[in-house]
């Protein structure tokens, strides 16, 4: 796999936050074993790393494998899967619980399913903080209010007492971000965080994520299907196809991708700036399923 020199230099300056070498995930199905991830290697520094691919490419499974949140039927193997120097594969449940939320956080596509419907959003954010820090209720509340302000919620005190069903999708996603970032994690995995949102709301959420990454020096894995978005938002892009990485490029070089699948994917996208009668359709090739 080839990454551009510029991008890999930036990541190599210090120890990678996340390192995966030959990561494989298989699912034990009723009628055999299904290989979802078939040998994926990458490392994440303090950067915005995008993983793009179509449904079935395994991009979300990669995110879950790092969090070790795969269902019990999943068999995860790797030469190395580590957060800094912690081996995620051999870590005990207790260690994993400590890592999740405290050091590695995850934001899902739809906040509706990630928030507890019977607790106010403020309580949930405060609770997320208290899980990892021994502080009084009062201090946790203060922290939560500060965090709500940080994700640009205008009247944090009022929002603190709202229940999840009382907030819009965009605000729900801000709340999720506040909840995930309150314990100052070092890695954030965002799985399609904005695909359920309108474009203008999406832009605001991305701006918040962008600021957080810059201010706190986070490493972010941004899982998405939206190539246009990734191009302007992320630093590096990993393109996945059928459980493998077909190409890794700097986001700025996205238009110069080499692999026929990546090219096909980009070409099949309707363009805002140029009109074509027909959109080129990807002619899939069985050789893409083999190792690059």
């Amino acid at each position: 796999m080839s990454s551009t020199p510029r991008a890999s230099d930036a990541a190599a300056v210090q120890m990678p936050l996340i390192e995966a070498r030959d990561l494989r995930v298989a699912f034990q199905m009723q009628r055999g074993v299904f290989q979802a991830i078939r040998g994926v290697s990458f490392s994440l520094g303090q950067e915005k790393l995008a993983i793009v691919g179509e449904s079935g490419s395994g991009k979300s499974t990669v995110g879950r494998a790092i969090m070790r949140l795969n269902p019990p039927s999943a068999i995860v193997t790797a030469e190395r899967l580590a957060f800094k120097d912690v081996d995620l594969l051999s870590a005990s449940r207790k260690e994993l619980r400590r890592l999740r939320g405290r050091h590695i956080s995850m934001i899902m596509q739809d906040p509706k399913y990630s928030l507890n419907p019977v607790a106010t959003v403020g309580e949930q954010i405060a609770e997320a903080y208290r899980t990892h820090h021994k502080v009084s209720n009062r201090e946790a509340r203060e922290r939560a209010l500060t965090m709500l302000e940080a994700v640009q919620i205008r009247s944090p005190k009022r929002v603190y007492d709202l229940y999840p069903h009382q907030v819009s999708g965009g605000m729900g996603q801000r709340i999720m971000i506040a909840m995930m970032l309150i314990s100052d994690p070092e890695v954030l995995i965002a799985d399609e965080p904005t695909s359920a949102l309108d474009v203008t709301v999406r832009l605001q959420i991305l701006a918040i994520l962008d600021d957080m990454v810059k201010e706190r020096g986070l490493g972010m894995i941004f899982i998405s299907h939206d190539l246009n978005l990734v191009r302007s938002f992320c630093d590096r892009v990993i393109i996945m196809y059928a459980g493998r990485i077909v190409e890794t490029v700097a986001a700025a070089d996205l238009d110069n991708v080499q692999h026929p699948y990546s090219r096909g994917l980009l070409n099949s996208l309707p363009r805002l700036d140029q009109k074509r009668d027909r959109l080129p359709v990807i002619q899939r090739d069985d050789s893409w399923l083999e190792a690059v």
Partner: peptide, 11 residues
């Protein structure tokens, strides 16, 4: 739909 499938359907 995925982008590649979207292209087919739009065509």
């Amino acid at each position: 739909l995925d982008v590649s499938v979207q292209a087919e359907v739009l065509n």
